[in-house]
Every structure is written in C-alpha cells, then in structure tokens.
Design a protein around this nucleic acid. Structure first.
Length: 905
RNA sequence: GCCCCGGUGGCGAAAUGGUAGACGCGGCAGACUCAAAAUCUGCUUCUGGCAACGGAGUGUUGGUUCGAGUCCGACCCGGGGCACCA
C-alpha cells in the first residue's frame, strides 16, 4: 500500500511532540463522530449492493428479528458479528449483500392488542421504526434499500403465490390435527400460552381439540434433507447432528399381529424385530383407530382415551408422564408362536404420529416397555444376552438391557447377533406375509395453520357446493382487514362481519374465506430470497437469485438450530421442485451463535419484571424500583421478551458509543458460546477506544506537524554515543513493528475468515499495544526518517484491520492521519496482504522437558540440530539436575522449534 | 424422558496432542496531580521460599501416549431444543 501524504523532511524548527499527552478537549467525541461517519457511509453508498456478474459475491445474512419493540443484546451480538464479516469481505473485494428486515407477524402483536388496545399493525410498525433507528445508530452496514417486513402486503402477497404453487405441486394437504383449546376463552392457544396445563389468561384446563388444518409435506423430503446435511460442511456439527436426530431415520420392521378372535390385524412398527420372542404385550396410542373403535363399546376405555386427550400435547410433557395404560380386552397373536397371546393396551406413551401408532413391548430390552411392564405386572423375558458377562438383573434394577448382544430364549434366533437376528426375523415375517422391513422417520409433516389474525392469510375459499377452492391469481393478494375487534379472545377474522364473506370462484355462489393464517415460520422460510429483489412483482427475480444465492454466511441463534433452519431447507427444496430455483441448500455456512443470558426477576404477584424495573440494594436484597417490594431472582436464562430478562443496548450505546458496545459484544467470548450478561468490561472497551484515539492522534501530529522529528532528536543527542543509542532504538522499533504488523495481518485475516471474532480483537490489541510500547520512537520515525512512508503505511494497514471491528473509530483515525487519498473512507480501503518473508523468526524458544515435565527453556536457531539442542539443554542446571535425578537418558523426543523431551529411566 | 452443547485463575477467556492461562476485566503497588478522574509503569493461577528454585493445577474418575485442557470410557453439574414463542 502506498502513502500519498508525504511528511516533510526538512527541519522547520517545530517543537518535539509528546505523543502520549492528550487534553480533555482533544478527546474523541464519540457522540458527535459516530453519526457523522454513518452519514458519510450512506452518502458514499458504501453498502448498497448491486448484482454484478463480473464481481465475486458474498451474501451475509442474519436471522431477521421479530420487532418486539427494542433491540436486545442478542441482536447486537448477532448483528455485530455479521457486520464485522460483511465489512471484512467488502474490504477483501467481494460484492457483499448484507440486508435487514423484519419477521413482523406473530403472537406478541396480538397480545399487545389484547392488553393495550393498540392495533397489531400499528404496534408492529412503531416497533420497526424504533428498532430500525437503533440498528442504524449501531452503524451496521446494511443495504437498507432492501429492507422488507413480512407483515407488509407487498411481501405476503408474494408468499400467497408460493403457497398456491405448493398446492399445485401437491405439497399441501389438509388433515385433522390437535390444538390446545381453551374452553373458557374459546380460542386456540400456543404452547407458550399453556402454563401447567391451563390457559394463561383464563386459567381453564386446556383441552386437546381436533381441527382441520393445512400441512406441508416436509416428510416427502426427509431422505433428501438428511442426505443434504452431508454437504453442509460449513455448518456446525452439533446443528447437523440435531437436525439428523430430528429427522430421525430408523430402520426397522412393520409387523402385522393377528388380533385373536377377530379378522383384522394390528400393525406395529419396531426397530427391534430381533426381540420378538421377548414380547409380552402390545400397546397402541389413544388416537389409534383400534382404540377409538373399542372405546365406542367400552365406557372404561372411552374414559381412558378421553383422559389421555386432556393431557399434554408437547412431547417433553408426554415423556415425563408416568406410564399409564388400559387393557382393551383384545389379544394379539404372536407371529412366531401362535400359542402366545399378547394383551393389547392403550398406553399414554405411544404416539400416533410416530411409526404406526402401535408397538409390541419387549420389557427386557426397552426402558419404556420395562416401566410399563413393571407397572402392570407383565412378564419380562430376556432374549438378548450381553457379549461379555452375565445377563444383568433387569427386574431388580429396573434397567432394561438395550446394548448389543447375542440372542437367547428365541428358538431359531438363538446364538445370533442382534444385527443378524433382525434380518432373520424380518425374513421370516416376510415369508409368512406378516411383515416387511421399513424405514420410519421421526419427522412429521409441518402444520402451518394458525387460528390467529396477525399472520399471512391462507389464500383459500370454502364453498359448500364446490369444496375448497384456491383464490384465483387475479384476486390475490388476500389482505388482512384493518377493522378488527380485539375486545374478546379468539381469532378476529372469524368474528369479522364481512371479511370472510366472498363468492366461490367455481360456482359464483356464497362462500367463506379461510380464516386461518400461516405459521410465521412460513414467512421466514424464504425472506432471504426476497432480499435479492425486494420490490419485485414476483416473489423473487430468477437472475438475482442465481447471482446472490446461496447465502454464503448465515448467522443466528443456536435456538433456531432445528425448526427454522429445517423449514428453510425444506422450502428451497419445495421451490426447486416447483421449478422456481435450481439449488436445494439455502445456507452454505452457518454460525450458530450462543445465547445471551441474564437472570430473571418476578414480583410478588409472579409477573416477570424487566431488569430496569429492579433495584439491587446494598444489603444484597433485590427489590422492585417503584414500590420497593421484594423481587424473586431466578437463574440465568436465555434473554427473551416473554421472561423480560432483556437488557436495552441503547443505554450502553448512549453512554459509550456504538463502537464500544459492539467491541464489547464480540470480545472475549467465542461466538458459539453462551454469554452470561455482565457489564464488567464495557469500560475497558471504551477506554481502549480513547487510548487508540490519543495514540493515533500523536502519530498524526508527528506525520503532519513538526517536520524532522528524527532530525530534532538526533540534534538533541549531543554526543556520538547518544546518537548511536537513538539509532539503535529506532532500529529496534522497526524490526519489532514490521513483523508484528504482518503477523497481525495474517492472524486477523485467518481469524475473521473463521469467525473467531474474539481472537481477532485480541490480535488487534496485541498489535496496538506494541504501537503504544514503541510510540515515542514510532513518532520519531514518522516525523521524517527514511522509514516515514513505510511507517505511515503500517498505520494505514492497522486501520484497515481495525475497520471491521471498530468501524467509526477507524474512519476518524483514517481521516486524522490524512489517508483519504488512498481511499476516501477506511470502509473503502482494500484489505492488506501479509508478507510471509517478514514472519521468519531468527531465534526460537524451545521448551525442554525431562520425562514430560518442563525443566527449562532454551533459545535456539530455528535450524538448530537435535544434537546441539540437547547440548544446550544439558547446559541448564535445572535440566542437568533433573536428568541426574532420574538416571540415564533413554530416549529423546525432538520437535524442531518447539520442544525437546529427554526421557530418562 | 429423548437429543445437542458446555465446565480452564477472583471474572470473560487463549492454547494444529508439545512451555496451560495469550488478550481483556477486576485487584494491588507505584508515577503524575493540591486532590480526584483520566493516563502511564509494574505485579497478579494457587501454594512453599528472602531468593534461586520447588510442589500442585484445566468439573470427577479411569485409560491411551515420551507428553493430554485437547483423544477414548464412565460419572457429576450447568444450559438449550423437543414441532403453536420466534
């Protein structure tokens, strides 16, 4: 990099500059400077992205926020990471797309309407305006011209087209499914609104009720979603593993058990056909057709089924229930032993959604089956023996044996391994016509119907005569009515006097609109495509998508590791099938950032409190700020609006500035790790910025101000000896800083590329700490030596390295050093390259161990031979003493430039 | 319950199987100051020692290795997800 501003080298008699002294008036005015640079970036159009096939592109995407009202620390963390990367990639010469928008539909807006009477649209728009301002104040380098909001009819109109395309492609269907029904409020509740089995507002016991709902056939893509994970080598392994487990492929068998004294059979799914001889019962889900039919004639069974319905809808809750069952009075005939009859139970731990909704129970080798068998006094027959040792006491320890082993007590399977027995059992079942090998997925189809107002209307019409009709293309979009009544619970679309009334596109008769709206995950499954042509008249422009997609780096909270990311992956496949796009995976690389956590507060009434409503007294008590009532402090959890344990970052920004707040969020903690919120350290970030300002200010003065620093200093050094000392000092500075800069370039480039933001900050600090250590002689070099240009270039390079991390400060210093003829703005300066030849070390420190224990360190030439190293090592008294203490050297481990280990005996 | 992740100084953390604690926060001491703030300098894992120099140490425990924070096994503790919060 060349430097245009050449410092004068003649002596004009200027005063010596004291680099470290800064008066208050010379301090960095963050509040004034930051908005000014934000304006400058905007005016220069630094961040506006334009598709240009000639340039390599890089799409940086952050999970867009729900407009809850204010940004919180999790957002700042997420967006600070993204912005650093976007700025870094721009400097590296990429054409960067870095957009922002709003996941604007959702439940909280309706809650605000219910609680405060404010219309969801108004509330949402206000929140967006507030949060946009906050993000802009953070100096994030978004292309705001591409901003979108999912609640904008311009967005959801396009979404309705996609919905109809999926319908055309046969990816959508309707079926009955359970919802949480609040019998008092007469409304459907989200899981979040069910607290300990009761409606959050009414307190009524929640029931499960069946409703006809829309489903997307995500299960069609299960094998492809699984296979695709293999290619996502820039996704974290844990996220891929979570997705893999969620898809939940299991290889097993379907077995038809003849029902005794009836003509029909019960088909069960099992992954352990090898354990068939250990079966002691069958169990079916409460929603299984067989259970339904038995319930019709048996009131006790009906009561049990009804009881199961009352219970939980969540898998987590279901699994915590005590295993309960009810005998149906029916028996299943064992397929390999007609003499054995297995009682058929209805059991609360069998899920209708998984497999066939029916199982056979082998208590000895399945923990859930064992618990059930122990509760209902069913036989426990071990059929697999461990490979080593005796069969453990299964009943005594109440622990099923589910590891690998050898078959016993199983007639013609005896002696086989589990794997061989599985194959053999299936083979036998196939021959008998009673079974087959099948693969089952845990994944269920995606239910997208929501009985709510604030979502994208599902573009369908119900006609009594013609049935379900898609809204014709020329009648799209179906927009939400504005005049809605939130004075009572339930979906206002249903109660609206006119909105749902329409005519059938088929017969022209009276018909009703679908009043369900879409799951907001639908909205967020394609927004990254819309960013490429945000104002387009079609959902997205094919050429723009072809250029920008896939997303090169996606950044978001690990809490979205499964649902959102899986739905988005499904969506691109669905769009591919519909011919809209030609790729399957939307996100090439993923950073699953850890959560920002904070302790929680509840008042005496059990209401969540925001941290700012809480005061910590000197005596350690925590009280409510307004009435001093005692507050209950909960453990640290993910910051969330529902628990109100959020921190307003704007207060920090007001106090310290955007750069300090951002630096604080990216320092110290690695991105993927959770962060327990604490303000300890923010002062240090602000001080670092102040220190850098005064440091570089001193350098700027040295460059610009008094010419001939070096000359002055040399003049001042009256004797030859003093002059020689000065020359040596300056030389040392040169020889220290030169490799240090290139080390920093190399390190920061690698670290930012690997998203190790905390380490990049540490590397930058290491470099600038060195500048501080050498500030006097660096000032002298800048002030008119042969190396002045090189030193100025070095400072310019350091600012380019700084620019992604501290963008506002870097601009301020860039201008201050007069570098604007290299690039008008630091944000436009190209990323430096390191010179590997400058990183060669002439001396290396080598650790000397005796029997693996550190006994000394020797400084050697990198090319030093093992023999010489041993000699140098033994010259150390500590090493010699340790060797003497152990006897003879038996072995030497020599890792050049690193370590010498003398193994003695 | 099932799946995933994490555990290293007083605190946040760093460390291709090769000198544990880089870089910070906090603390202590000193310089500057009438004083304070800011700034600067030094020290700061614990422990013994005046020191030189030792001993211990990465949640617990066992193993692999010349050598383990790192790899393998078992366990303990904390956090996240579990399909209608987003």
């Amino acid at each position: 990099m060349s430097c245009g501003l050449r410092p004068p080298t003649t002596n004009n008699g200027g005063q010596a500059v004291t680099v470290s002294m800064v008066t208050a008036a010379e301090r960095y005015d963050v509040a004034q400077a930051e908005p000014q640079w934000q304006d400058a970036w905007h005016a220069a159009g630094c961040f506006t992205a334009t598709a240009d096939a000639a340039k390599p592109k890089f799409y940086v995407l952050e999970m867009f926020p729900y407009p809850s009202g204010k940004i919180h620390m999790g957002h700042v963390r997420n967006y600070a990471f993204g912005d650093v990367l976007a700025r870094f990639k721009r400097a590296q010469g990429f054409n960067v797309l870095y957009p922002m928008g709003w996941d604007a539909f959702g439940l909280p807006a309706e809650n605000a309407a219910l609680e405060r009477g404010v219309h969801p649209a108004v509330w949402t728009r206000q929140n967006i305006a507030t949060m946009r301002g906050q993000l802009q104040r953070l100096g994030l380098s978004y292309d705001w011209s591409r901003e979108i909001a999912t609640c904008d009819p311009a967005y959801y109109a396009q979404q309705q087209k996609l919905f109809l395309a999926f319908y055309q492609a046969g990816l959508l269907y309707r079926k009955e499914a359970y919802v949480n029904w609040d019998p008092v409020d007469h409304s459907v509740l989200a899981n979040e609104q069910v607290i300990e089995g009761r409606g959050w507002r009414s307190g009524a016991l929640v029931e499960r009720r069946q409703l006809a709902q829309w489903f997307l056939k995500i299960t069609d893509f299960a094998p492809d979603l699984l296979a695709g994970l293999q290619q996502l080598d820039r996704w974290p392994d844990n996220v891929r593993l979570m997705q893999q487990n969620w898809l939940g492929l299991s290889e097993g068998a379907e077995i038809a058990f003849q029902i005794a004294d009836r003509d029909d059979a019960l088909t069960v799914f099992t992954t352990r056909p090898d354990t068939l001889f250990g079966a002691s019962f069958c169990a079916i889900a409460a929603d299984h057709p067989l259970a339904q039919s038995v319930a019709k004639s048996d009131p006790a069974v009906a009561a049990f089924v009804a009881d199961c319905r009352l219970g939980a809808t969540k898998e987590a809750d279901v699994s915590k229930l005590d295993k309960k069952g009810h005998f149906t009075g029916l028996y299943a005939v064992h397929p390999f032993d007609g003499g054995r009859k297995l009682p058929i139970y209805i059991a609360n731990f069998v899920l209708m959604d998984y497999g066939t909704g029916a199982i056979f129970g082998c208590p000895a080798h399945d923990q859930r089956d064992l618990e059930f068998a122990l509760a209902y006094q069913l036989p426990v027959l071990p059929v697999v023996a461990p490979l080593k040792g005796d069969l453990p006491d299964i009943v005594g320890t109440a622990t099923a044996f589910s590891e690998d082993g050898v078959l016993v007590n199983s007639q013609w399977l005896d002696g086989m391994t589990v794997t061989a027995a599985k194959a053999k059992a299936i083979e036998a079942l196939v021959q008998q016509g009673q079974g087959k090998a099948v693969r089952t997925w845990r994944l269920r189809d995606w239910g997208i119907s929501r009985q709510r107002y604030w979502g994208c209307p599902i573009p369908f019409i119900h006609c009594d005569a013609c049935g379900l009709q898609p809204v014709p293309a020329d009648q799209l979009p179906v927009t939400l009515p504005d005049d809605v009544d939130f004075s009572q619970p339930g979906n206002p679309l249903v109660r609206h006097p006119t909105w749902a009334k329409t005519t059938c596109p088929q017969c022209g008769g009276d018909a009703r609109r679908e009043t369900d709206t879409m799951d907001t995950f639908f909205d967020s499954s394609w927004y990254f495509l819309r960013y490429t042509s945000p104002q387009g008249a079609e959902p997205f422009d094919a050429a723009a998508v072809k250029y920008w997609l896939p997303v090169d780096q996606y950044l978001g909270g690990v809490e979205h590791a499964i649902l959102h990311l899986l739905y988005a992956r499904f969506f691109t496949r669905a769009l591919q099938r519909c011919g809209h796009i030609d790729f399957a995976e939307p996100f090439k690389a993923l950073l699953a950032q850890g959560m920002v956590c904070h302790e929680t507060y509840k008042d005496q009434a059990g209401q969540w409190l925001y941290p700012e409503e809480v005061e910590k007294l000197a005596n350690g008590q925590v009280v409510k700020r307004d009435d001093q009532s005692l507050v209950r402090v909960g453990r640290s959890e993910k910051m969330s609006k529902s628990k109100r344990n959020t921190i307003d970052p704007m207060e920090l920004i007001g106090r310290y500035g955007a750069d300090a707040a951002r630096l604080f969020m990216i320092s110290d903690t690695p991105p993927a790790r959770d962060l327990d919120w604490s303000e300890a350290g923010i002062d240090g970030c602000a001080r670092y910025i102040g220190r850098l300002y005064s440091l570089y200010r001193g350098f700027a003065t040295a460059i610009r101000g008094s010419a001939g620093q070096n000359h002055e200093a040399v003049q001042a050094a009256k004797t030859d000896a003093a002059a020689a000392v000065l020359a040596t000092t300056l030389n040392t500075t040169l020889n220290t800083l030169r490799p240090a800069l290139h080390q920093a370039i190399r390190d920061i480039t690698l670290q930012l590329g690997d998203l190790q933001f905390n380490r990049a900050v540490a590397s930058l600090r290491t470099l600038t700490n060195l500048f501080e250590d050498h500030r006097t002689s660096l000032g002298q070099l800048l002030g008119g030596s042969n190396s002045a240009d090189e030193m100025t270039d070095m400072l310019a390079n350091s600012l380019v390295l700084m620019a992604p991390l501290l963008p506002h400060l870097a601009e301020e210093l860039w201008a201050m050093l007069g570098l604007t003829d290299q690039a008008a703005l630091a944000a436009q300066a190209p990323w430096p390259q390191h010179d590997a030849s400058l990183l060669q070390q002439t001396q290396v420190k080598v650790a000397v161990q005796v029997n693996g224990k550190l006994r000394g360190v020797i400084t050697l030439d990198p090319e030093c031979s093992q023999q010489d190293a041993v000699q140098a090592a033994l010259a150390l008294s500590t090493v010699q003493a340790a060797v003497d203490g152990h006897g003879q050297i038996r072995k030497q481990i020599w890792v050049p430039s690193k370590l010498l280990n003398l193994v003695c005996a």
